[in-house]
């Protein structure tokens, strides 16, 4: 299909079929690593080299006029929603009405308390998660809001959680800009 230009005068070379595994970290007997073996998927999993590949970047997100206010509000311990054309209140606020696509601009104070709509218990938190002890990721409907906000709830143990449980934000000691300016939510009372 594609016109090819292949060099015809490449020097002759002898194929080899065995590759010695001689590197200290991969000791052990010599193995035959022919491509036939490879393609027949008979290469044992431990024969294929593996290594960590980490992609990491500190993206800087331009917030625009709506999320800019929302995140600014968090630094003043205020929670803002925005009113849709239908009258419902979106939290977090969005720039455009998800139903009609219109630009939105009527901010509404919501919370700070709210109730759990659903949750998932995290018994073994991973390094970058908001808390270093077991916690719940919960969908929280803040008072005055018609949508839910996803955040961590520091409840100690799962048995204390229920649908409808009241929660309130615990503010970060040092606001850094971002959703973790709410350190997490905690059960009221």
């Amino acid at each position: 299909m594609i016109a090819l230009r292949v060099r015809q005068d490449a020097p002759p070379v002898e194929p080899i079929v065995a590759v010695r595994r001689s590197a200290p970290t991969h000791g052990g007997p010599m193995r035959r690593l022919t491509m036939e073996k490879v393609m027949a998927q008979t290469l044992a999993a431990d024969e294929v080299l593996r290594g960590p590949h980490v992609l990491e970047y500190p993206y800087r997100r331009s917030l625009g006029p709506v999320l800019g206010r929302f995140f600014g509000g968090l630094q003043e311990h205020r929670l803002l929603g925005i009113r849709m054309r239908s009258g419902k209140v979106l939290v977090p606020p969005q720039e455009y009405d998800p139903q009609t696509g219109e630009a939105l601009e009527e901010f509404v104070d919501v919370g700070p308390g709210g109730e759990i709509v659903s949750w998932s218990w995290v018994s073994k938190p991973r390094p970058k998660q908001p808390l270093d002890r077991p916690f719940a990721f919960a969908l929280i409907r803040l008072d005055g809001a018609d949508t839910t906000l996803l955040h961590a709830v520091d409840a100690g143990e799962e048995s204390k959680l229920s649908v409808g449980a009241r929660v309130t934000p615990r503010w970060a000691e040092e606001p850094g800009g971002g959703i973790l300016d709410i350190a997490c939510f905690e059960l009221e009372g």
């Binding site: 490879v38 590949h53 993206y59």
Partner: peptide, 27 residues
């Protein structure tokens, strides 16, 4: 009395893959 608006925030992303070189590259 809207709060001050932030212009931008930093949202770090870190992805940790266990990369397989594959059979051909392993040889």
């Amino acid at each position: 009395d809207l709060p001050n608006a932030l212009k931008s925030i930093v949202t770090p992303v870190r992805l940790e893959y266990d990369h397989s070189a594959g059979a051909a590259a392993t040889g």
